[in-house]
């Protein structure tokens, strides 16, 4: 997927999944798969989900833009239910995430491995604009580094989620995090959680494999 450059696009536009610049992005359909039951990290989860469908969302459309300073992903997928609250114990929110390798060769299926971390930018409908910047080095190890660096916003309209997840290119951090810059090529993965199916944690739909990501250089691109 190519991350198109939109010269001078204000960050507010990139963070609005319905804003005009998104019409210039090249959307790519990404097929999603339920995470395999055997990879669920605890026996109780494997037992509880043995006869339940994991991965209610089968496909997501992904596009991405940058303005030279901020890179933003937009994910949209059909969802009949808007699950934002967790007021009752059995209510789970919808969620989505973009995963990026911090080092080449970091495995996707296990969300990284020891010494091969991945960065995860995470949106959850109950904390819409509070994106989470997550570091993971294997299943069960993910930890939130902060809730400030990654911006997010989702709009649910007419049975569709339209969610933007964004981060500045330049960051300062003592933790391992994905380094990105215009002109770079790397890979990305996607995950979507369907709250109405009680999906949370490792119970989710994911892209199965890394997909190529080509970030356009900050040249040309036209005016926003």
């Amino acid at each position: 997927m190519r991350v198109n450059f939109v010269r001078g696009a204000p960050v507010e536009w990139l963070l609005d999944p319905e804003a005009e610049p998104w019409s210039r992005a090249q959307a790519e359909k990404v097929e999603l798969y339920g995470t395999p039951i055997g990879m669920q990290p605890t026996e109780i989860i494997r037992t509880a989900w043995a006869n339940r469908k994991i991965g209610a969302v089968g496909e997501v459309r992904v596009s991405a833009l940058h303005n030279g300073e901020v890179i933003a992903f937009r994910l949209d997928w059909p969802d009949a239910t808007e699950n934002r609250d967790l007021d009752d114990t059995s209510a789970f929110p919808d969620g989505a995430a973009i995963m990026l390798p911090v080092v080449a060769g970091a495995p996707l299926a296990t969300m990284g491995a020891e010494g091969k971390p991945v960065s995860i930018w995470y949106w959850r409908a109950d904390a819409d604009t509070q994106g989470r910047n997550v570091l993971s080095e294997g299943i069960g190890t993910s930890r939130t580094l902060d809730t400030k660096l990654v911006s997010s916003h989702g709009v649910w309209r007419n049975g569709r989620w339209n969610v933007v997840i964004a981060r500045p290119f330049k960051i300062q951090s003592s933790d391992p995090q994905v380094a990105l810059e215009p002109g770079q090529t790397t890979e990305f993965g996607v995950a979507v959680w369907e709250g109405s199916n009680s999906e949370r944690g490792g119970v989710k739909a994911f892209s199965g494999a890394w997909r190529p990501l080509e970030i356009a250089p900050s040249t040309g691109g036209g005016k926003a």
Binding site: T42, E43, I44, R46, T47, A48, D87, D88, T89, S90
Partner: peptide, 14 residues
């Protein structure tokens, strides 16, 4: 020794 599935109590159940 095998984990058993369990029900989630609701807030009204509590």
């Amino acid at each position: 020794g095998a984990a058993q599935p369990g029900r989630m109590p609701s807030r009204k159940d509590f």
